[in-house]
């Protein structure tokens, strides 16, 4: 079952997606010619773009394959198998496109020998995790809204909220409460948003972490330790697992 969806996905859209990332990586490296600098540029793109693409593809795919899903529901199959199969098929193929699409150009330009290898792998891992998170969130939105337009709207709003609005609110609250010790608050607030969390994880891995100054020191103290790394990756995994569990839960109860 899962396998058929793998195949389906790999055929069309994921190929386009793969091509997009491949081209992006090639062009970036061609213009930059410096692997470690390209990794920094890549970070901006991954942190913003993978969630967006994950959400949109997730919702689109859910609505597109709705009729086929209904057909499958008539078969003697467990609901969780069907929906998890769809989810993993989509998320895996998107994540795969990302990893290979970027990995191949960077491998050609010699990432393996350069010092940026660790940060590049972290970048890809974070990108893949973000894909999983946002596809799951999008699937939840699809499952709870039968109205396509509403579903799309909500999905885009979700992305907008986590990628832009959240940071805006975060910034305003930091500026407003700057008389108080807000290091801990900023640490927690940035961990609650998967996009912020991934951004900070990557920044701390890169050289530019010293720019973060004293606040950075608090972060470095936390994320720099293996506990902090594990905790933040764990949190990303929770961000991933919770919506997936919700998919299973919702799919079981939903009346088609």
């Amino acid at each position: 079952m899962t396998y058929s969806f793998f195949d389906l996905m790999r055929s069309r859209w994921s190929l386009v997606y793969f091509g997009f990332y491949f081209l992006l990586g090639m062009v970036l490296l061609f213009l930059n010619n410096d692997v470690s600098k390209a990794v920094i540029t890549m970070m901006n793109i991954i942190v913003v773009l993978t969630p967006l693409i994950g959400t949109i593809f997730g919702v689109m795919y859910y609505y597109n394959s709705k009729e086929f899903t209904e057909l499958l529901l008539a078969q003697p199959l467990r609901r969780s198998t069907i929906f998890l199969g769809q989810y993993f098929g989509l998320a895996l193929s998107l994540a795969g496109s990302l990893v290979f699409g970027l990995g191949i150009p960077f491998a050609i330009y010699g990432i393996v020998g350069s010092g940026a290898l660790v940060s590049f792998i972290l970048l890809l891992a974070v990108g893949a995790l973000l894909t999983f998170i946002f596809v799951a969130l999008a699937y939840n939105i699809g499952l709870s809204n039968d109205n396509k337009i509403k579903g799309f709207g909500l999905a885009i709003l979700l992305w907008l909220f986590l990628a832009v609005i959240y940071d805006g609110m975060f910034l305003i609250s930091l500026v407003m409460f700057d008389d108080y010790p807000i290091d801990k608050f900023s640490l927690i607030a940035s961990m609650l948003n998967p996009i912020d969390l991934s951004r900070i994880l990557i920044i701390l891995e890169l050289d530019i972490s010293v720019l973060l100054g004293y606040t950075g020191a608090v972060f470095q103290k936390f994320f720099g330790t293996s506990f902090g790394m594990l905790a933040s990756f764990g949190l990303l995994l929770i961000w991933c697992a919770a919506p997936v569990a919700l998919i299973v839960h919702k799919a079981k109860r939903k009346d088609f």
Binding site: M43, N44, V47, V48, A163, V164, I165, D167, G168, F170, L171, L174, V175, D178, I182, D183, S186, S190, D196, R199, I200, I203, I208, L211, L212, G213, Y214, T215, G216, F219
Partner: peptide, 21 residues
């Protein structure tokens, strides 16, 4: 300018929101 006023905001470095403002 914001970072100068509130150094803690530097954690938003390279965020999309920051690019927009």
């Amino acid at each position: 300018y914001v970072v100068n006023r509130t150094p803690e905001t530097i954690v938003l470095l390279r965020s999309l929101f920051v690019d927009i403002i």
